[in-house]
C-alpha cells in the first residue's frame, strides 16, 4: 500500500511540479541503453539490406540521385539570388531581416509504443543542445516539437498527435489558422476556419511563426478537403502533412531558440550583410 501511495504521489508530482523534469532526465539515463538496444534490430536489418543490395540497383539509385541533385542545385542557384533580393526589399521597407535557421541532424531511435500518442525518440539530448520546445523538421516539412529531453535522447511530439497544435498560414494568400493533430498520421485539421475564408484544395500550409515556437515559412501540410456545411459555424478543412511522419528516420532539429530568433531579427536591421 505504501508503494501504491508512493506511485500516486509520484504521478501528482510529475504532473504538477516542473522540477521533476530534471529528476526524470537523470532517471532516464538508466533506461537509455535499453532504448538504444530496442533500436538495434532495425538498424542491423538496415545495414544488412545495405550489404545485400546488388550493384545494378545501386547504380540506378546513384543515377537517380545525381539527376535529383542537379534539379535541386538549379533551384538553389535561384534561392541565393532571391534571398539577397528579399533582404534588400526588406531593408528598403525597414523591415526586420529573417535569420537563416541553423539545424542539427538527428536520428530516430524509437517510436512510442502507446498507439494513442504520436511520439518519437531522437538520439540527441541536452548534451547535444536539444531543448524542450525545439522545432523538428524532416525533408518534407515540419514534423513536430521536442517535449522532453534527457541527456542523450529527446522525445518529439509529432504534429499529428491529438494534443498538438501548430499555427499555420496559407502560402497563397497568408490566411492564418491553427492546425490540430487528430491522432492519425494521414491528416491534420484546421480549426475555426470561417465559411467565407479563401481556402482551396491543394493549398500549401506553411508555419506562420506566430507563437514563436516554430520558425516561419516551413511547409506543414497540403489541404486535402474543404467541407462547408451551412449547419455548422465553421468549415471543416483537412490537410495532409508534407513531412513523412511515419517513415523518415533522419530528422532536423532547429538550433536557433525562439527567443534568440526574435532577438536577432530585432537587432539586425542596421547591421551589415554577413
Amino acid at each position: 500500500m505504501v508503494l501504491v501511495l508512493l506511485a500516486l504521489l509520484l504521478i501528482l508530482a510529475d504532473l504538477n511540479w516542473p522540477r521533476m523534469r530534471d529528476a526524470r532526465s537523470y532517471l532516464s539515463l538508466a533506461v537509455t541503453p535499453l532504448q538504444w538496444l530496442a533500436d538495434v534490430p532495425g538498424r542491423v536489418a538496415d545495414d544488412l539490406s545495405d550489404l545485400l543490395v546488388d550493384r545494378s540497383t545501386l547504380l540506378k539509385e546513384n543515377e537517380q540521385l545525381k539527376s535529383e541533385q542537379l534539379l535541386l542545385e538549379r533551384r538553389v542557384q535561384q534561392v541565393a539570388a532571391l534571398t539577397a533580393e528579399n533582404i534588400r526589399l526588406r531593408e528598403l521597407l525597414e523591415g526586420k531581416r529573417r535569420v537563416q535557421d541553423e539545424v542539427m541532424l538527428a536520428e530516430l531511435i524509437g517510436v512510442n509504443p502507446d498507439p494513442f500518442l504520436h511520439q518519437v525518440l531522437l538520439n540527441r539530448g541536452t548534451e547535444d543542445g536539444a531543448f524542450v520546445g525545439q522545432a523538428v523538421l524532416d525533408a518534407g516539412g515540419v514534423s513536430g516539437q521536442v517535449i522532453a529531453t534527457t541527456h542523450y535522447t529527446s522525445r518529439v511530439m509529432l504534429i499529428t498527435d491529438a494534443r498538438h497544435a501548430i499555427p499555420v498560414e496559407i502560402n497563397r494568400n497568408g490566411f492564418r489558422a491553427i492546425a490540430l493533430g487528430k491522432g492519425t498520421y494521414e491528416e491534420i485539421e484546421l480549426e475555426h476556419v470561417p465559411d467565407t475564408a479563401d481556402v482551396r484544395e491543394g493549398d500549401l500550409l506553411i508555419t506562420s511563426g506566430l507563437g514563436g515556437r516554430f520558425p516561419r515559412g516551413y511547409p506543414v501540410a497540403v489541404v486535402t478537403g474543404v467541407l462547408r456545411d451551412p449547419g455548422k459555424p465553421f468549415s471543416m478543412v483537412t490537410a495532409k502533412p508534407t513531412a513523412r511522419l511515419d517513415k523518415s528516420r533522419h530528422l532536423l532539429l532547429v538550433k536557433t531558440p525562439p527567443s534568440q530568433r526574435a532577438e536577432v531579427a530585432g537587432t539586425v536591421s542596421g547591421a551589415g550583410d554577413e
Partner: peptide, 17 residues
C-alpha cells in the same frame, strides 16, 4: 513499472501503480 514509465514517457509512477 517506473522503468517502463521512463521508457514510455508517461507520467512517472503510472506503470508503477
Amino acid at each position: 513499472g517506473l522503468a517502463l514509465d521512463l521508457l514510455k514517457g508517461s507520467p512517472l509512477g503510472l506503470n508503477a501503480l
